[in-house]
Design a binder for these strands. Structure first.
Lengths: 323, 323
DNA sequence: TTAATTTGCATAAGCACTTATATAATTATA
DNA sequence: TATAATTATATAAGTGCTTATGCAAATTAA
C-alpha cells in the first residue's frame, strides 16, 4: 500500500482516484448510517435544482461540468425516487424542466444539517493538514486549464525527439550515396502528391552542379542510424536563399524530422548573413505550412509566377522575430 | 461549470473526481498520440511487476492498495496483450506469478521515456501552482487515515442530536403523567428482552416511594416535544448510587437519547459527591454496554448476587478518568 | 488425519461516470 | 418554405474501479 506513494509524481492519478473514492464512499456511509435514502452522486444535481428552483438538464450539465447523459441519468434516478419532477417546457418541448417535489423538500430538511456537518468536517480536515487545500486544488485546476499534462508531455516528447535526430550535410566523400538518397526521398513524396516537374528533375538528377556548386546546401536527417529525410538551401540571385526539396520518409513522419531539417536550413541561412529566405509550397499541404510557420516563416503574396506548377503558396522567413 | 467551485468544501468529491479524470484521460491521450498500445490503468501494475520482476496477484493488490479483483482484471488484460506472463507457483498452486514477457520488455523501452516526461510534467505543473502539491496530498491522506470524513461527521451529528434532546427531572406537578411514562417506557423494553421481575415492578409501580423518597432521581428525555426515554439514579446504602431503569422508546433508538440520559445521571451523581456509581445489566446487551463504556463505566466483578435475574454484567463509573 | 478455517484467485454484478449515437423539436438558410 | 443545421434529451455501450460470492488449494485445529 505504500508503494503507490513511493512512485511520487508518476502515480498521482491513482492517488487522486483513491482520495476521491474515499470522499465518495464516506458520504455514502454517512447517508446510510443516518438512514437517509440518498446517494452521493445525486448531491450536486439535487443541490443545484434546489438552489435554482427550476432548471433544465443542459443548463445543469453546463453549470456542473458534467456531460448531459450524466445529468439525464441522475435526474432520472431522482424522478424515480419522486424527489424531483420533470415537465416539458411549453415554448420548447425539447427542454425538460426539473423542480423539487414536496417529498424532495421534506428530504432536504433532513439533508441540510448533514450537508452542513459534511462541509464543516471537510473544512476541519483541510485545516488539520495545515495547508489551504481548497486553494491548492483551485490553483491546480487553473494551471491545468492553462497548460495540461498532455500538452506539457507533448512539448517534452517533441524536444526529446528533436535530440534524437542528427543533421548531416551533403558529404563529397559519400557523394554517390547522398545523391541517390536526395533523389529518392524527393521523388517518393513528389510522386505521391504531385508530379516531378522539369525544374525538380534538373536539381534532383544533378544536385552537385545545380545546388552545391551554385552556393547552396543539402542536409540529411539521421534517425536511428537511418536517413529519414532531406532538405536543401538553394542560393538565388543576390543574397537570396530558398528553402526547398524538403522530404521526409513516410514511416518517419510525425517525429519532428521536418522540424529539425528546417531548423538546420534556417541556421545555415543565418550564418550566411542571408536577408531574404523564402519558400514555395502548395496551399494544400497544411501540415507543411504549419511546420514552416512554427519555424518562423510567414505568408507573403506571390508576385511573379513560380518555377513550379504546384507552388501556390509563398512564405518568407521573418528574421526580425527569430534572431 | 463555475457553480461546482462555488460550492466549496461540500462538493470537493466532485472536484477531485474531475481532477482525477483529467489526469487519467490526459495519460490516455498521450499514449494514443504516440501510438503506444497502453492504457493508463495498466500503469501501476505493469510498473510494479517490472520493478519486482516477479510478483503474485495478492502481493500486487496489497502494495498498490487495489482490491484483488482489480489486479486480476488488469493482469488478465496484460496477459491478453502478451505484455506479462502468468504461471502457477509450484509450491503453492493457488498463487499466480506474474512476470514481464519479451514483448513487455520491448514496450517498456518505449514507455520509460514517456513516463519520464509525464513525471517531469506533473512536477512542473505542481511547481507552477506555487505549492507543494505532493506534500498537501500526502498530508490529506494521513489526516484522513487518522480521522476520516465519516467519523468526523458522525461526531458532529451525535453532538447535534445531543443538543436536540432536553432532559427533564421527575416533576411533582406532573406526577401522574411522569409516573405513567416511567412505567410504560420500562415495561416496553423489559417485556421485549427479558421479563418484569419483582424488584422492577416495585420500583416501576411506585417510583415516588421507592426511588425519589429514598433519595434517588428520575430523568426523562424529550425529543421533538415527545418523551423518548427515561433513566433513574437510585440511592443505595452509604453514598452509593445505581444507574438503573434506563429505557428508550424503540422508534427513538440510535439518536443519542440513552447517551444524554446517562450523562444527566452521571452529572447528578457528581453533584451529590457520590463516590460509587454502579449499574447492572445483561452481558447480552452489547449496545447498552458500549454506551455505558462511552459514559465512563468500566466492567467490574460481580461479588454478591444481584437483585435482578437478568443482571450478569456489573459496571462501575470511573470518577478518576472523567472529572 | 479428518474437519474446519484461511488464503489466493476468478467471476459476476454494480456504480458513476464517460463517449458515441439516435431522435425529435427548433432555428437558420437557400 | 422546404431543407439543412443546430439543439435538447435519450439510449447504448464502455471504463475502471468496487463489493459480493464462489471455488479450490493450503494450513490449522480437533
Amino acid at each position: 500500500m505504500n508503494t503507490i506513494k513511493q512512485l511520487g509524481y508518476i502515480a498521482i492519478g491513482t492517488r487522486l482516484r483513491m482520495l476521491t473514492d474515499k470522499f465518495v464512499s464516506d458520504a455514502d456511509r454517512i447517508y446510510k448510517s443516518i438512514g437517509v435514502d440518498f446517494e452521493p452522486r445525486w448531491f450536486t444535481v439535487f443541490y443545484l435544482i434546489n438552489l435554482k428552483k427550476s432548471i433544465t438538464v443542459t443548463e445543469l450539465a453546463d453549470q456542473l461540468g458534467y456531460t448531459q447523459p450524466a445529468v439525464t441519468q441522475i435526474a432520472n434516478s431522482l424522478v424515480k425516487k419522486k424527489l424531483i419532477s420533470a415537465v416539458k417546457e411549453k415554448r420548447d418541448s425539447r427542454k425538460k424542466i426539473l423542480t423539487i417535489t414536496a417529498k424532495g423538500e421534506e428530504l432536504l430538511l433532513e439533508l441540510i444539517p448533514i450537508w452542513q456537518d459534511i462541509e464543516n468536517s471537510v473544512k476541519e480536515l483541510f485545516n488539520d493538514t495545515g495547508n489551504d487545500v481548497l486553494f491548492v486544488i483551485s490553483k491546480l485546476e487553473s494551471e491545468l486549464e492553462k497548460n495540461d499534462i498532455f500538452s506539457r508531455v507533448m512539448e517534452k516528447t517533441k524536444n526529446r525527439q528533436l535530440d534524437e535526430i542528427k543533421i548531416l550535410e551533403f558529404d563529397n566523400s559519400k557523394k554517390d550515396v547522398h545523391k541517390k538518397l536526395f533523389k529518392e526521398l524527393n521523388y517518393e513524396w513528389l510522386n505521391k502528391f504531385f508530379k516531378v516537374e522539369k525544374e525538380d528533375a534538373k536539381q534532383l538528377d544533378n544536385p552537385e552542379r545545380e545546388i552545391i556548386k551554385k552556393g547552396g546546401f543539402i542536409f540529411f536527417a539521421e534517425y536511428n542510424n537511418e536517413i529519414a529525410g532531406t532538405a536543401a538551401l538553394l542560393k538565388r540571385e543576390d543574397n537570396n536563399f530558398e528553402l526547398a526539396k524538403m522530404a521526409v520518409k513516410e514511416e518517419f513522419q510525425g517525429r519532428q524530422i521536418g522540424k529539425k531539417l528546417g531548423m538546420a536550413v534556417v541556421e545555415k541561412a543565418k550564418q550566411l548573413d542571408c536577408e531574404n529566405l523564402f519558400l514555395e509550397t502548395s496551399s494544400l499541404l497544411t501540415p507543411a505550412i504549419n511546420l514552416y510557420k512554427s519555424l518562423g516563416f510567414e505568408e507573403v503574396e506571390i508576385k511573379e509566377p513560380s518555377k513550379y506548377e504546384r507552388a501556390t503558396f509563398r512564405m518568407k522567413y521573418n528574421f526580425k522575430n527569430y534572431n
